[in-house]
């Protein structure tokens, strides 16, 4: 049973799961924790990757500068996204509007609209071809660990995902900003009454979440060596599944579920055709919704 083959598949699964987790963290912060329906996160990811690529082809800066550039674009994109697709729906401040679910869920379409506009605009500007990243920047030099082969990017992604997770957990549980985010998420009207600047809190969350999305985008661009306008779609779906499985508001839950998803997909490839591996994600989504409507980690979900 302890065939190195399974170890290799496990390692691949973990690395795949990490890439999902990277995307899921920022996604869960906005969608799950802040409780705002946002379907434009995939395009923030794509924008981050394109920002990095443009920077690389223009000035060939060191990799740290590339990531900082992507973060800046992510912050800007998050701010603009909130402004265009979310803020207009908060202009009615009467109690009925604030409590209205329809008002809150209408951002499903407005964010989707923004995402379509961004994707098509990128297609017009850059073309829909896959663009290659200069090979010096790629983070996929093979590294042998015992019987298993990984690449440098796996370790970098692990480090970045861990840093994001720990940083966000600290922010959400130990700081006043985090408290404000959770308060707004739990009861926007109540938060307003106790004097929390809800607008600012929402904008901050969008900026932080989108910076993480953009960082994920550029890292994945460097990892796979290809950047294209439609690149945000599949990771967006996987992140969504991980978030729902993890119980919507739990970032550690989303990360663990992203890892479970990655490992299941790579292990499933051993037993069924690779063509079916996407079924794993959707299957998990359906099973979670039927048997664990609160998500796997929903029971321990913290609600202020």
């Amino acid at each position: 049973m302890f065939d190195p083959y399974y170890l290799q598949q496990l390692a691949i699964g973990l690395s795949l799961g990490m890439t999902y987790a990277l995307m899921a963290i920022g996604f869960t912060l906005i969608f799950g924790v802040l409780n705002v329906v946002n379907f434009a996160h995939g395009e923030i990811y794509t924008l981050g990757a394109f920002a990095g690529l443009v920077l690389i082809s223009a000035t060939a800066p060191p990799i740290v500068a590339v990531i900082l550039g992507a973060l800046a674009i992510g912050a800007l994109a998050g701010f603009s996204l909130e402004r265009i697709a979310f803020k207009p729906f908060r202009r009615f401040t009467d109690e009925a509007s604030l409590k209205s679910r329809a008002m809150r869920e209408s951002t499903l379409l407005s964010s989707l609209a923004v995402s379509i506009v961004v994707r098509e605009a990128l297609e017009i500007v850059f073309g829909s071809q896959m663009r290659s990243v200069p090979f010096d920047y790629l983070i996929n030099t093979p590294v042998r660990v015992g019987p298993v082969i990984l690449v440098t990017g796996d370790f970098i992604i692990f480090g970045v995902a861990a840093a994001m997770l720990i940083g966000l957990q600290y922010l959400l549980t130990r700081t006043r900003v985090g408290l404000a985010i959770r308060a707004v998420s739990n009861n926007p009207l109540g938060a307003k009454y106790v004097g929390i600047d809800t607008d600012r809190t929402i904008i901050t969350t969008f900026v932080v979440g989108s910076m993480m999305g953009a960082a994920a985008g550029i890292l994945m661009g460097l990892y796979y060596g290809a950047v294209f306008p439609a690149m945000g779609f599949t990771p967006g779906i996987k992140a969504f599944v991980a978030m729902v499985m993890g119980g919507l508001s739990s970032i550690p839950g989303a990360v663990i579920c992203a890892l479970i998803l990655g490992i299941s997909e790579s292990m499933a490839t051993t037993f069924v055709s690779s063509g079916w591996s996407d079924m794993v994600a959707y299957g998990f989504l359906i099973l979670t919704l039927i048997f664990f409507p609160n998500g796997l980690f929903g029971a321990r979900r913290e609600r202020v």
């Binding site: 598949q9 691949i12 699964g13 690395s15 795949l16 890439t19 796979y224 599949t234 997909e265 790579s266 490839t269 051993t270 055709s273 690779s274 063509g275 591996s277 996407d278």
Partner: peptide, 13 residues
Amino acid sequence: EFFNRGLKDYRSL
């Protein structure tokens, strides 16, 4: 075997 178009990670396969 068949894989899905647009699959990013072929390492398992």
